[in-house]
Structures are given as C-alpha cells and as structure tokens.
Design a protein around this nucleic acid. Structure first.
Length: 494
RNA sequence: GGCGGUAUCGUCUAGAGGCCCAGGACGUGGCCCUCUCAAGGCCAAAACACGGGUUCGAAUCCCGUUACCGCUACCA
C-alpha cells in the first residue's frame, strides 16, 4: 500500500474499446496522475479464440484519441514487460507448476462438456453448481500417470473448505465472502493457457501493481484472486471496484443502446474532451457542483473516495449538452475544420464546396452556437450548397397561409437589390424601416424571407444568411419564391 | 437457485446524525432577450424504495423486506 502507485488497464482484445472499458481506463489513468504514479496498459490475450490483432489496434486508437497515454505498455516497454499476456506464458506455467507441486492445485481431467452437463444438472436440482471435485479424489499416482500419458487436463486451484476471504475495498469498504461458496477454479486450461483470474494475479504481482481499479462486475473475482495471491505467497494490491455503466434501460451498456464504442462517438462528432469529461462524471463526482474539467484538471481532482457505489446510466442528452459546451469553446478555425472533416467523411457535399475554407468559416461562424456537433452544420446551412431551395412541408404551408407574403418578398428583394452594401447593421436598419413603411411586423417580413432563402423556419440570423448567399442568389430566391407562391395559389383557386 | 453488490428528483449526483420541509447539473415547463432557432438570464415542477429499530434527533447507523445489477465458464 505504501510504495509507488502503479495501476493498469488490462483489456482483452476481443472487440472495440467501449465506454465501459474506456471509463475504467480513464479512472486508472487519473488515479495514476493524481498520485504521480505509473499507468500501465496490459493486453490480456489469453483467450486465443477471441483475441484479435484488430482489437488490439482498436484499443490503442481509442485510448490515444481520448488522450489516455500509458506510461508502460505496448510500444512503451518498461522494466515489467512484456505487456501482452501471450508473451508471458512461461511465468504462468511456472506458477501453476509450483502450486501443483505444493499440493495447492490439482489436475482435472474432466471434459468440459461433462462439466457443463453436471453444472446444469446441479442447477436443475436447485444446488449450487460448484465443481464436484471428482479429480481431487484421484489418487496422485493415477493423476501423474494420466498426465504423463499425455491426457489433456486443466489445473484447478484447491479452495479452502471453510473460513472467509475479505478485503477492504477502496470504494466500497469491507467486503467478505465465505470460502465455502467459492469453488475450485481452473487456473490453467488444457490448451496450456492460463485463465483470467490466474494470469491477472501473476501479472499484477509481477508488474508490482499497487491498486487494481476495475468495474464492480469483478467483485466476485476478487476473493478468488485473493486466495491465489495467498497461495502464491504474494502480497495483494489494494482493490477498488467502481460501479458499472448501464444503458438507458438499466441493463449493461451494449450495442442495443446505440453508439457504444469510443470511436463511434468520435465519428458521431463528439469531442474527446467532452467524452472524457462526461465519462469521468459517471461514477465519480468532485463536489456535486462543478462538472466541467479538462483531463489535467481531472487528474488533479480524482480520488477513489469520491467514487460512487451505484451503477450509472449513460445519459446521452447530457453528453450532447457537454459536447456543445466544448464545441462552442473551440476557435472558429478548428470548428470549421471539424465540420469540413465530417462533411467530407459523409460525402455530404460536392468537393468544390470545401475549396474555399474562408467561405466555410463564414458559414460556421453564422451557424454559431446553434450546433453542438459538426453533423448539425447542414441543419443550418444546407441551403448554401444547393442551386434551388425546396421548402419543407410546414414552412411551405405557412407561406401559402400568409396572404401578403409574395409582395413582401418582392419589396424585400427590391430593397436588397438597391442596398449599398450587405452590411449587417445597415440592412437591419433599412429592413426595419421597410417593414414599418409597409405596416407589417419585422418578424412577418423576415420569416417569409427565411423560408424563401433556406426552405426552413429555423436558420442563422437572416442578415447572416443574406451575406452568405450573396446579393444575386438572395434576390433570385426571394422573387422565385414569390412566383411559386402565387402560381400555387392560382392553381388552388382554379 | 446460491453468493456478492447497490438503493436520494426521469437521468448523473451532493449529502459521511442536527447546517436538509435535501443542494447542483442534464432533461422538462414557463418567462425574459429576440427576425426564427440556438446560446444566455430568471423562475418552476421533480427525489431520500418500504418496514422496523438505535438516538433528544436519521437521507445519513443497525436489521428485515422489496427492487435492480453482477458473478455463478477450461470468457475476460
């Protein structure tokens, strides 16, 4: 517990980096930063069936994007490497051999299918599905002979029959398990690979991990691992189990809940700063008041004592809000860049639309804080990139319902045609004067124009839209819309 | 089924016996600002799961119930 702080994030490369894993990584990272310790990345690829190289790459990419840099790990070899469990097999084999020799573990020749059958039968009878210790009762000589003959077998750790295993959890306090409820877990598989609980213990000890911070789905693994530490004569680390992240329906976050991998959030336009900040608040709070933190500030503020014990439901609306906070704070050039990036990725516009970065920046500036994510840009600017505006149903009906709309559009067009400049304030003045002259409310003149120009009832300020469109296009759209309204009205009458 | 964990507004949470007829944030509703929408400002509705204790006093401690979650693999 004294000694340097060394924590790790130990994902299994069986998929992408999802928010649950990322949050665990983040907490470990923050804990290390807070204590000036070391954050280690270790890849737990002992499941040869499911581990893939692509997943390893996805985890790296996700962590890097979030800004969670590891001090030791793949690509950052330290004194405790290697950092892939597949490269540390010798250590597990030796440790298992030692336990076997000392009689703390035994070989199990039971076939997996047979085990499964017994388990189901026990469950059916309403009994706990513990391993029945068939192979523990094997005479040592027989066990040795069968192993020598090459019969495939696993190695099981022999759990104590009584007593209890307890620890003081750094976030939950005292947790106790009766040893009698623990069964003889397999530590080494027939395929010569260690199981998770065993490899984790051997590595955490070898890597001198001081604190194991992980999701609370690991609570029931902890007593097993504690027994293993004891059997191996190793000092256990401090354990801290943080609450899990649930989907909106209260079940474990999964694909069903929409975006879940960190990269999907990036592609949806979320900023890593926002996602990090948001994830930090899932299961941790500073004082219940302050909510906006940079990664560095989180490192300053983060402590296990302030982690909550209850599971947190992932709140997409709040993430959206937070992303808006960060997005709006970005310099204009950066926002425009992100918008361009997104537009390009979506293939949303013709290539020439991106040619003029200044033009794009003007549009982004006009859209202003209406967008929380780059993907919302087109909601407020699509009309800039089309030849002719096709009004949406609602707005179109509104135009038809307003009897004076066409004439207002025309007089507004005339005004703009003759305006000395498209300067915002000048136009604002002359437009208001015009409205007054015609005896209509300013808003009643602006709204038809907005619809004629953008096809929508919602847009940036009308004078920003005009400036962006330019005099030619503006005047043309205004008059064109007046014509269309009239011909539609005429058709309706006839 | 067994074991373990958790239980404060719809959601994330503050609260570690009196400061709480419970605070903040998202979301929701209203008002203001206003050319629309955002942003911003103001206001509002909204919670201590239930039942027993302990105590002068409990959201805070103990017990039980209920609910939810996790584990119960030769997955991690």
């Amino acid at each position: 517990m004294s000694g340097p702080v060394r924590v790790r994030f130990a994902p299994s490369p069986t998929g992408t980096l999802h928010v649950g894993g990322a949050r665990t990584a983040l907490f470990n990272f923050l804990f290390a930063r807070h204590h000036g310790g070391t954050f280690i990345l270790r890849i737990e690829d002992t499941d040869r069936e499911r581990s893939t190289q692509e997943s390893v790459g996805a985890i790296f990419e996700g962590l890097r994007w979030l800004g969670i840099d590891w001090d030791e790990g793949p690509d950052k070899e330290g004194a405790h490497g290697p950092y892939f469990q597949s490269a540390r097999l010798a250590g597990y084999t030796a440790a298992a051999g030692r336990l076997l020799e000392e009689g703390k573990a035994y070989r199990c020749f039971c076939a997996p299918e047979e085990l499964k059958r017994r388990r189901e039968a026990a469950l059916k009878r309403g009994e706990p599905p513990k391993y029945d210790r068939t192979c523990l009762r094997l005479p040592p000589r027989e066990s040795d002979a069968r192993a020598a003959a090459g019969e495939p077998h696993a190695v099981r750790y022999r759990m104590p029959d009584d007593g209890e295993t307890a620890w003081n959890d750094a976030v939950r306090g005292d947790v106790t398990f009766q040893n009698a409820t623990l069964d003889d877990l397999v530590i080494f598989r027939a395929d010569q690979h260690p199981t998770y609980n065993f490899a984790a213990v051997v590595d955490d000890a070898a890597m001198e991990i001081s604190h194991v911070i992980r999701g609370d789905d690991h609570i029931s693994n902890t007593p097993r691992q504690l027994r293993l530490y004891a059997a191996l004569g190793l000092a256990p680390p401090v354990f801290g189990h943080v609450p899990m992240i649930l989907g909106p329906d209260g079940t474990r976050l999964s694909k069903r809940h929409g975006a879940q991998s960190v990269m999907e959030f990036r592609d949806a336009g979320y900023l890593s700063e926002a996602l990090v900040n948001f994830m930090a608040l899932l299961g941790w709070a500073y004082d219940g008041e302050r909510e906006l933190f940079t990664l560095a500030e989180l490192g300053e503020a983060f402590t296990l004592e302030r982690c909550s014990k209850n599971p947190a439901i992932f709140n997409y609306e709040k993430l959206d809000w937070m992303n808006g906070e960060y997005f709006r704070a970005l310099p204009l050039a950066r926002r425009a860049e992100l918008v361009a990036e997104h537009l390009r990725a979506e293939g949303a516009l013709a290539p020439e639309a991106y040619a003029d970065r200044t033009e794009l920046e003007r549009a982004v500036a006009a859209v202003g804080d209406r967008m929380k994510r780059p993907q919302q840009f087109l909601d407020y600017a699509a009309y800039l990139f089309v030849e002719r505006v096709e009004p949406e149903q609602g707005p179109w009906e509104e135009l038809l319902a307003k009897p004076g709309a066409p004439s207002r559009l025309r007089s507004f067009a005339t005004l703009l045609e003759g305006a000395a400049s498209l300067d915002h304030d000048a136009l604002d003045q002359s437009s208001r004067a015009l409205a007054k002259e015609e005896g209509v409310k300013f808003g009643d003149m602006v709204m038809p124009a907005r619809i004629a120009l953008t096809g929508k009832k919602v847009s940036p300020g009308i004078f920003d839209v005009i400036a962006l469109l330019g005099r030619e296009r503006t005047v043309r759209r205004l008059r064109d819309m007046a014509d269309r309204i009239e011909s539609a009205a005429g058709a309706a009458k006839a």
